[in-house]
Each structure stands twice: as structure tokens, then as C-alpha cells.
């Protein structure tokens, strides 16, 4: 079967961004299975409108926009139970110390407790690597508002964690 350049482009897009999209989706919905579905649906939608992607540099933001829309659509269709902190999995990462693994699980639990309006800009910044201006564009807010939300997001997260403990272990 002849592989088209469009297919090549899509392969590259999937391999380059599936991880970031999955993580972003996971932190949006807090559910690994749902995050996989969201990632897949996002990339399949991207395939259908791949011709709209003109610049490689814009790919990540473009995909995140699709993902956010998909997530919003999902919430329009059905409502989900809130995530039980006790159900959050600890990741099996050999390189980390037991203390770090424990700390990660606490940060994750706190992250899921954060209100979406604070969690989302924080995810875009920390996971996506977007600047405040880019986040503002993505969320349809002003830069100053985004900066305030990011500052408050960290403050709230620290207070949820008991900031001193996290900072000390880092």
C-alpha cells in the first residue's frame, strides 16, 4: 500500500504529540481510560482536518485546542463522578525514590482538587510549555488575567499540599 505524504505527516504528529495530549487530557478529566479516548479522538479529528495545519510550530497549540473542544463536548454529553483521591494510582517509575513517588501522588491529588479555571492555565504552562500570551489566546482571556490565575493556582496548590513539605522534598 502506498503511504501518502499526508499519512506520513499524521504519523509524525501522533508520535510527537500523543504523550503531551494524553497527559493534558488526563489532567483535564482525571481518568486514564477517558484520557486515552480523548487523545485518540483529538488526533482523529486532527487527521480529518490535517490540511488546516500549515505550520509545524503551531501543531501543539492546534492539537490542544482540538483536545479542549473534545473535552468540552464530552462534558456536554455526560457528567462524570468526581475523582476519588484515594483511587489515584502511583506510577511505577523505577528512577524515583519512594519519597518522590509519594510526593508525586500527593501533588497529583492536589492538582485534581484544583478548580478547572486554575488547573487549566497551569497545565498549559507546565505541561504545554506555553507562554502567558499563548495561554491567554487559547483560553480567550487577557494576559493579565492569565498571570493572576497562574499565581493563584500555585498559591492554592501550595496551600493544598502544605507548601513547605513539597518544597523541602524537591
Amino acid at each position: 500500500m502506498r503511504v501518502t505524504s499526508r499519512q506520513h505527516q499524521f504519523d509524525a504528529l501522533v508520535r510527537a504529540h500523543n504523550g503531551d495530549l494524553y497527559r493534558y487530557a488526563y489532567w483535564l478529566c482525571g481518568d486514564p481510560a477517558l484520557a486515552q479516548d480523548l487523545t485518540q479522538e483529538t488526533l482523529l479529528r486532527a487527521w480529518r482536518s490535517l490540511d488546516a495545519l500549515r505550520e509545524t510550530d503551531a501543531a501543539k497549540a492546534w492539537l490542544i485546542t482540538i483536545l479542549r473542544r473534545e473535552h468540552a463536548r464530552l462534558y456536554e454529553r455526560k457528567s462524570f463522578d468526581t475523582t476519588d483521591i484515594g483511587e489515584l494510582e502511583l506510577d511505577d517509575r523505577d528512577s524515583l525514590t519512594p519519597e518522590q513517588l509519594g510526593e508525586d501522588s500527593i501533588v497529583r491529588a492536589a492538582m485534581l482538587q484544583l478548580e478547572p479555571k486554575y488547573r487549566e492555565p497551569l497545565l498549559l504552562q507546565v505541561l504545554g510549555g506555553f507562554s502567558c500570551e499563548e495561554i491567554a489566546r487559547e483560553l480567550g482571556l487577557g494576559s493579565a488575567a492569565v498571570m493572576t490565575q497562574l499565581f493563584r493556582a500555585r498559591q492554592k496548590l501550595k496551600s493544598l499540599l502544605g507548601a513547605g513539605r513539597v518544597e523541602a522534598s524537591a
Partner: peptide
């Protein structure tokens, strides 16, 4: 804090 946050957010990809 940022390092700890980034590490925690980087959940493993299936």
C-alpha cells in the same frame, strides 16, 4: 516546586 510539579504532572503515557 516547579520541578516537583512538572514531575508529578508527567503521568506515564500508556
Amino acid at each position: 516546586f516547579e520541578l516537583a510539579l512538572k514531575r508529578a504532572l508527567a503521568v506515564p503515557v500508556p
